[in-house]
Design a protein around this nucleic acid. Structure first.
Lengths: 196, 196
DNA sequence: CAAGTTCTTGACTATCTCGTCCAGAACGTA
DNA sequence: TACGTTCTGGACGAGATAGTCAAGAACTTG
């Protein structure tokens, strides 16, 4: 029919994501996006629309990747559910610790910068949090059935608490809290979850 | 000696703070700052230096006000320490719930946007978090001495956990989590703190 | 009240930034 | 191969934006 696209859309989204991630929405220039993706501005506008539309694509892509990864890590049989929960909490703490440039999480950054004025960002963020809490709830419920956590507690409430701690770890990491502090919080959070 | 300033510095800082708070650092224009503060750009530059220097003044001012408020709310005699802790956690949850425009916390927003590239913001944020954890630690230690919390736990670790939950509440609020969810997390966090 | 100093205002400049546009390139189809 | 279509790259323009500057205002002190 016509000339096909010469770029890989996913690669362009990743490059654009890194720009927005590093500089924020307002701090990212369209020229930077063009340079980072290797596309001319004409191609960029033709393929994705304007800066805002591209940001939404990137943000949605990031949220989906992020929450899907969590889902995969948390789902599984009941008898290893508690282990998976522990691993997940530790993994988040380690990723915060490992992030020495304090790049943080694009979801946290994007929500902080844009959710107030951008309904699409707010909506996508809300869905991501809901998904995360659902995956945590399922995992915790599994651990309760397996007898590794007290069955008396509402799993959704515990999941909310864990989610808040994990989001808090991310925020504290941004704030430069030391590795030992981050790890201690993760340990303490796991320790206070009610056991049978 | 000379012509005195015709503006109230604290009022100017508050007006500038609201601009940065609403639009972020990169999203705030110097013209907006001038309009919001009522000062001409010359006065603004003369009194505070450039945009970045003004931002740092504002950010420091906000952090100080914020942490001082928490200190005042948490300090006091041991026998009411646990009550103060509960009140504080509830107050944070309620402030998140009440923030229907999702303006959030300037510290969270500023750290998310700037800490990565701006050493001064990173340093100030780290100090604020350290202060907050110290105040929480002192309050929790008081509650332990009064017999309202289990004395077996390290108060600094519990304080870290509480701080993470509070910062997490803020992040979840930005993400549009419902009031009931926010309040449930606050309740659950208080409920899992180990009692004697 | 005169002199000296600092503050104020807003016009101005130089640069940046978004988004458009077009000439040419690359491809499928007939 | 010739044609129609879509993609590409970058020059361009309109408007925004950070920071400067100069002329005058306001105040203190001698």
């Amino acid at each position: 029919m016509a000339r096909p696209r010469s770029f890989d859309e996913a690669a362009v989204l990743r490059a654009a994501r890194d720009q927005f991630w590093e500089h924020g929405y307002a701090g990212t220039k369209v020229d930077d996006l063009a340079a980072a993706t290797g596309l001319g501005k004409g191609s960029l506008y033709g393929a994705f629309g304007d800066k805002h539309a591209l940001y939404l694509r990137v943000y949605d892509y990031y949220c989906t990747e992020s929450t899907d990864g969590v889902r995969r890590r948390l789902e599984g049989p009941d008898d290893t559910a508690y282990q998976r929960l522990q691993d997940h909490v530790h993994a988040i703490a380690e990723s915060v610790v490992a992030d020495r440039e304090r790049r943080g999480c694009l979801m946290a950054k994007g929500a902080a910068e844009c959710a107030e004025h951008d309904e699409a960002v707010a909506t996508r963020t809300a869905r991501a949090f809901r998904d995360l809490q659902d995956y945590l709830t399922a995992c915790i419920a599994g651990a309760q059935r397996a007898g590794d956590l007290a069955a008396s507690e509402d799993p959704a409430r515990l999941a909310g608490l864990v989610l808040a701690v994990l989001r808090g770890l991310e925020a504290l990491g941004k704030g430069g809290v030391e590795p030992a502090g981050i790890r201690a919080i993760a340990e303490t959070a796991l320790a206070v979850l009610p056991k049978p």
